[in-house]
Structure formats: C-alpha cells, structure tokens
Design a protein around this nucleic acid. Sequence first.
DNA 1: AAAAAAAATCGTCTAAATTATACAAACCCA
DNA 2: TGGGTTTGTATAATTTAGACGATTTTTTTT
Lengths: 230, 230
Amino acid sequence: MLSKDPNYHNTFSIDNVIFGFDEGDLKILLIERAEEAFIGQMALPGNLVLEDEDLDHGAARILFELTGLQNAHLEQLYTFGDVNRHPLGRVITVAYYSLIRIKSDDLKPRISFAKRASWVSVSKIPKLAFDHNRILEIALERLRGQLRYRPVGFELLPEKFTLSQLQGLYESILQIAIDTRNFRKKIIGFDFLVELGEKQKEVSHRAAKLYRFDKKRYQSLVKLGFNFEL
Amino acid sequence: MLSKDPNYHNTFSIDNVIFGFDEGDLKILLIERAEEAFIGQMALPGNLVLEDEDLDHGAARILFELTGLQNAHLEQLYTFGDVNRHPLGRVITVAYYSLIRIKSDDLKPRISFAKRASWVSVSKIPKLAFDHNRILEIALERLRGQLRYRPVGFELLPEKFTLSQLQGLYESILQIAIDTRNFRKKIIGFDFLVELGEKQKEVSHRAAKLYRFDKKRYQSLVKLGFNFEL
DNA sequence: AAAAAAAATCGTCTAAATTATACAAACCCA
DNA sequence: TGGGTTTGTATAATTTAGACGATTTTTTTT
C-alpha cells in the first residue's frame, strides 16, 4: 500500500437545492447565512465536506444540520468550480438536489446554528450568496427535464392527490397549458395510479377522486419496456 | 473585501472520457499512467486542477497535455468523491466527457509526458486505474441517453456521411436493430440534413448519397419548438 | 454477358397516439 | 331551485409512428 501524501488536502463544499410544491407554486429551501462570507444573505443550505465522508453522505448530513430535514432523496446535480466563486479561497462545490413533500405540519423546517431556513417561491428568489442563483437555474433546468421524462412530480405532491393537482403541478413548473381531458386520459392510461376510492373534502365544487402513485407498479412497467413521457 | 483564508486549499482532479467512433465501433481514449498511483495501468486522461484555473479550462488543458487533442467540446459529466477513491489522499475528481471525430490521419493522437494515448474499443476495456471503470460506465449511460434525445451522433461521424453510417452508429451504440426504411424516412423528415449531391466512392456495392448535418438549421428548428428524438 | 448478391431507395398500409367535440355528474352558493 | 364551476366519460377526427412490400443501382460471381 502507498503512504498518504500530505499535499493532498481538500476544500470542497456541498450545496443543496431542495424543491417543494405548495399552494400551486414551486418553492426552494433557503437559509440565512450566519458566517462569513455573505453573512446575513440568503443562500442554499450548504457547507464544507468533511475529510472522511463521501459526497452523498455529506449532502445528507449538511441538509439535516441546516434544516432538520431527513430522508430526502438527494441526487447530484453539477459541480461549480470557478476560481473566484468563493471569496475566502478556492472552494469547489458539488450541488445536490432533491424533491420533497412539504407537509403542512412542518412547513417551517426545524432550524439549527441560529440560521433560519424557509421556503421561498422560485418566482421570488432574491440575490443569493456566492453563485447560488446560477446553481438554482441549473437545478430548475434539470427539474423541468426530469418532469417530462420521469414520474418525479409525485414526489412533490402529498401521498393522496387529485388529477387536477397533478396537472396543476405540471402546468405551473413547466409553464405550459395542458388539455385536462387528454391529460387525465394519458395519465390513467399509464396504469400506475391507484384510485383510492376516496374523495376530496371541504372543496367548494365537485370533489375529485384521490389517487396515489404506485411506485412498484411503475418500476415493473419500466422493466417491460415502458417509457414515461410528459 | 475579505482576506483569503489559508485553510482553503484544493486537491481536485479532472478525468476526461473522450468518445470516438471508428470501424463501426465506439472507442474511448486511454493513457498509460507514468506516475504513482497505479503506475503502468491504463486510465482515463486526467490530472490535478491548478489553483488558478476554472474547471472547464482545466479539462481542456489536461486533455491537450495528455493527448494533444484540442478544440474538443468538453461537457461536465459527474463528480466522484468517495473517501478512498484515491490511494494518496482525498481527491475529488470531476469527470468531463466529449465526442470527437476520429480522423484517419491522426488516429494515434500525439503524446506527451512519455505516456501513450490510444483508442480502445469500449467492448475491450481492461481494468482501469482508480474508479475509472465506473466513470466510464456513467459516461456510457449519458452518451446513450443523449443519443436518443439530441443530435449528438453527428459529432462522432465524419463531416460527410451516409445514412447507413448514421444508422450503424445508432445500432452499435444503443445495441438495437433499426428498420432502415423507417430510419431514413424519419431522419430525412427532420429536415436538418443537407444532401451534398456527392456519393460514396470505392465501395463494393451501390454507392450511397453523402449528407452533412446542418447545425444552424437544427438550432433554428429547436427555436420553433422542434424536439429531436431517436 | 447473364445471374446472384448487397445495399440503397421509394412507397403503402395499419395501428396507435394526439387533438378536438360533446355532454353528463357532483357540488357549491345565492 | 337554478346558475356556475369543476370533475368525469365517451367518442370522432386527425396526425404520427411503425411494419412491411417492392424496386433500383451497383458489384461480384459464374
């Protein structure tokens, strides 16, 4: 075995782009920075990677420490390494992203480190620290791409949802109009939604049926050659 | 302005996955390592990133230094940062990938650093240094994905090509069989290929028409809402 | 020189997917 | 009770994608 070379240091960070969907509107999770640089400014929840942790692990740890969120399915997005992106030195950051269900009872995520974490509508993002606006842009592109070709929308909705809610999510995120009848025909035709036999309550119009996404069913369809699209 | 913090070091590397297509066969560019670790073993052309260069720039520089290749369109692929991926320390590597035209007259790329660079068929890849086999796997996935949804195949073919060559490329890389008549109908229907009025020469059967890919035409079609697929 | 072989090329037919039309059912509210 | 809104079903018209038949051009074989 070779001996370690002391010149091999590391200064990598991870920044998480966490998407949620609430009130018909796409949101991301931001914190207020409590340390230099960009102190007091809004930023993606991120921090340095520890020397003895893998990147995926670091992403989960950092997200938990800064927001209290656990069990998010984090996926690597892109790595940003421009020389001057960090005012304190050369820091390469690996961006991760995730889609989560905003539950009404924890709409305000738990906080730590005296930083506040909050959901901000993507249409109202302020100027962020570092190159975080650009990171968010790339994440949005990725989300829109995935939405068309993979059933990721369900990760943003509650377990039980109506077809209208699903359609609204697509229309809102992709900024398009979709024909309701054809949308429902297509989605139901995919045959991976389970009708729950329940209906909405407390809505001021005809109550819609509730469905849930059957992930196992979807995966077995994929094995048979099924290809999700829009 | 904030002063630099001396604790912010960096040890990042870049590894390039360079695809070429020749003799009906997908190939990648490998070097033989002349330094520790994994000395003498085959590896992707990669090296450490300099402190004062951006990642994209580093990818181009490293590729040039190790293989003599210039002007390749390099795109970021994925970042690999497992704690033990490098035996000399914690080194995070950002993988880039590129598709290039193998020209018959420089089939053997120029070399430097006493390392040999050579094209290796992806079906005959040996055990590589570090986690480079895994990096190649991810790159192959990406290439196959792109091939279906973007006109990237043309970057691997000569400027002038026949429809059969194009079809052969798809069949070889995606490992599928395609109906010739439907394939040519579809591709020609896209309306971004230019018939050159020339024909193949020195082939032992009916000579096929030569085409070239009209990139500008393609881009203007995209602006009009066109969506390439297979 | 004719026959066979290998590609290249053109065209048709059908099934599936998309888009558009019509209307009925459920529920709220005034 | 009746108008308004949204959910939901059925089906017709149109476009598109895929399966398949047949012909032309050129080289190789006999």
